[in-house]
Design a protein around this nucleic acid. Sequence first.
DNA 1: ATGACTGCAAAGACTTTGCATCTTT
DNA 2: AAAGATGCAAAGTCTTTGCAGTCAT
Lengths: 139, 139
Amino acid sequence: MQFKRNFSAKREAIYRTLSSTDSHPTAEWIYEKLKTEIPDLSLGTVYRNLSVFKESGLVKSVGVVNGHERFDWDTSQHSHFVCNCCFKIIDIPKSRMFIDQNTVSHLENECDVHIQNHSITFYGLCGDCSKKISESEDK
Amino acid sequence: MQFKRNFSAKREAIYRTLSSTDSHPTAEWIYEKLKTEIPDLSLGTVYRNLSVFKESGLVKSVGVVNGHERFDWDTSQHSHFVCNCCFKIIDIPKSRMFIDQNTVSHLENECDVHIQNHSITFYGLCGDCSKKISESEDK
DNA sequence: ATGACTGCAAAGACTTTGCATCTTT
DNA sequence: AAAGATGCAAAGTCTTTGCAGTCAT
């Protein structure tokens, strides 16, 4: 997406807030974060702008985790780790490429489909939650 | 999960319906499918039993696609293709293993996480939708 | 003025839940 | 009786939307 000239102040703030974190936030998180700075912001506007960003390809959805859609400003191909306990999302280093274009081509033939993209998500416990759990088990 | 002795008739029917299809259905789909056979079935019961199945590991969730959670009776590791147009879900042949245990171990160290499982999903257009779209473009 | 954007609140969509009832052992 | 399962409808949660008002050009 080319930044439109009339990228409104609120729209800009929403994008800026999203792109300033690696937490893959929810709409609500962005809204809460901006409320102090922009008191008259409404949650609907956040949702509306995230939809605009998604449609234009400016941001991507990481999917729905625990009932909340999570967003990512980094639209380049990379995988994620989702903690099953605290639902934190961590980027997998981009050096980790699990599926190449050649494999995709073969799959398209094998399954009679046209593949546009793919997503890889690992699930488990993040370092923090692992620690907490083993500590509570020690008691 | 061991089948409990008191696996109720409705619970059994819900599982049977799910396991008789490869469509990765929604709760609603299962409910509609069973309504004729079991007129006094309620949608809540379908949701409740799917939760039971999920918790016990009898079935897996494929994730939320277009707002609807999709279920899979096949709990073995395999990937999916999701059509962005009709939201059909297709199993990727199990011969296609993209990530091995060794890679997972390395990732755990690299990212300081404990990985329990992972999911790979391809998105694009299924054969049917591809055809429909190219036909409509021919006009 | 014109088109784009937003606040607000209502509506929507999917899922969960409380409670009384009904089964099954 | 006791534990488990269900129907029904209400409640819950996240997200979308209609509409009137506002902003930028």
